[in-house]
Design a protein around this nucleic acid. Sequence first.
DNA 1: GTCTATACTAAGATAGAC
DNA 2: GTCTATCTTAGTATAGAC
Lengths: 190, 190
Amino acid sequence: MTVTARERLLDAAVEAFAEKGFTATTTRDIASRAGMSPAAVYVHHDSKESLLFTVSRAGHLAALEVIEEAAASEAEPTARLQAMVREFSAWHATNSRVGRIVQYEFAALTDEHRAEIAEVRRAIEARMQDALRDGVAAGVMDVGDLPGTARALLSLSIDLLRWFSPTGAQSPQDIAALHADLAVRMTRVH
Amino acid sequence: MTVTARERLLDAAVEAFAEKGFTATTTRDIASRAGMSPAAVYVHHDSKESLLFTVSRAGHLAALEVIEEAAASEAEPTARLQAMVREFSAWHATNSRVGRIVQYEFAALTDEHRAEIAEVRRAIEARMQDALRDGVAAGVMDVGDLPGTARALLSLSIDLLRWFSPTGAQSPQDIAALHADLAVRMTRVH
DNA sequence: GTCTATACTAAGATAGAC
DNA sequence: GTCTATCTTAGTATAGAC
């Protein structure tokens, strides 16, 4: 379990990007958080943007994995949707630093990197739409605008990044449970 | 209706901050969008941050006004909540550039300016909580976590800034109607 | 693979002429 | 109130010694 210099730099980048944003973060800041000189950054990473891309890609893939595992964990459509929203919100609250980079620094990527990551985002949206479609087909959900509702469910999880604090009163589990409950309310047959 | 240099600079700042973010925007960029030299900025505004503060304050106050007018427009609690969510989402979609600055550049303000604007944010949350409390008291709404549900309703409107495009298929009114519908579903007695 | 030193560029803001 | 010119600081990234 040796922590390589490369990994220490990635951890430092996560800390700095989440705290100050990509543009406001300097490579000197990242280097000093990792206990290195500014020059050491470039031995392990090509550029500041490549650090961002590495963090953003890993974060997006982790978020997709969370939602796919949740989808696979339940067979009944309502329980499945609950699990997906609960775990997606819990992941964002628990990993709020990486989450902020994933959700708010997308525009700072190069065109090529942005295109690559956009595919992961489309997959996440598609999984949520699938879950709603299954529920409607089974007759346990009533959804007017299916893509719009899928997007709204993702919004609940993602927007918590704007206000969530790990030191606040609400735990990731509290928020996740609320969002799962709201997801059921938004989609159930009346 | 003469447009002053000060106003032209504010418009240019809105354009630039919304497009590239506060930190990535240069005062030279703002000046050239307003058709002026870099030095002209400082005749009309103290600093780059004071431009941000002016835009952010006006935007926050406009958003608060929208939600208060919607609250006053309907007496019946469910219709009132619908109106509030509908107008709040429509405002964000219609004013997405200012909206992005309002919601995403809060951290770039100075401590004093941030504290002043935080009060407006608290007022917006309070109005949404009031609306839910009225509905519960009237027996037409069932809300488990009242502050959490208020926050979730605001999240729907605010998170549209992350993905909304004025040139996309959905109009501000489409999105607003969807969100108003979801608000009713989230809060109605089952 | 790490450092010190630095090249090169560009930022926020100001001086002073008109 | 606008300009050109510039001060000062600081950024990304590289060179070259160890």
